[in-house]
């Protein structure tokens, strides 16, 4: 059951990510990314992170991707033009990404026994468990994010404002 769910949603993730890469129109890429994010939410649930699964759907697929699609519509972005990108990106980028993937996969699979197996329904992290750590041990980082959000508001307003 768990394995079947994992294979379905992991497959959706990879398919969505590849589609993001292959699609030429930004709106298609954005929609594929939403598929990736929503499938990831299911995987989070399988790993017992119920709060994050909800947050993933609400914050990522809901807020962030809506902002993306909104900007794509606002700027009326068309199909990607086939210009010659930096050659270096192709020459160094593809082998680099492939090497990174190979290395990480090798490490993860060779340590597979040490990582153990995940069973459904064990180690569920409830919102209460999270908030006990978040609002006590990590109170300061939590408060500090308010500065971050203030900067983001300030910056978005300052940059996107039209000159008069």
């Amino acid at each position: 059951m768990h394995l079947a769910l994992f294979i379905i949603f992991a497959g959706l993730c990879v398919a969505g990510a590849l589609n993001l890469l292959l699609q030429r129109h930004p709106i298609n890429s954005a929609l594929s990314l939403i598929v990736v994010m929503s499938s990831l939410a299911v995987l989070y649930l399988l790993l017992g992170a119920e709060f994050l699964a909800a947050a993933q759907v609400i914050v990522y697929s809901g807020a962030i991707m809506v902002l993306f699609t909104f900007v794509i519509m606002l700027l009326n972005a068309g199909k990607e033009e086939r210009t010659h990108g930096s050659k270096l990106a192709y020459i160094a980028g593809f082998p680099g990404a492939a090497a990174l993937l190979g290395l990480l996969t090798y490490i993860f699979l060779s340590h597979s026994a040490a990582f153990g197996h995940a069973r459904l329904g064990e180690y569920l992290a409830t919102t209460g468990d999270l908030s006990r750590v978040l609002f006590r041990d990590l109170l300061l980082p939590f408060e500090v994010t308010s500065v971050l959000i203030l900067i983001a508001i300030l910056g978005a307003v300052a940059l996107a404002r039209r000159e008069h």
């Binding site: 980082p141 500090v144 500065v147 971050l148 203030l150 900067i151 300030l154 910056g155």
Partner: peptide
Amino acid sequence: LMLFGAVGMMLMSSAVELLLVFVALEISSI
């Protein structure tokens, strides 16, 4: 923004938890 950026930079130098390092780094970068 200059003042807020400095908040991030200062916290980066005093943070001993990688989570705070990350948040502070983002404040200074953004």
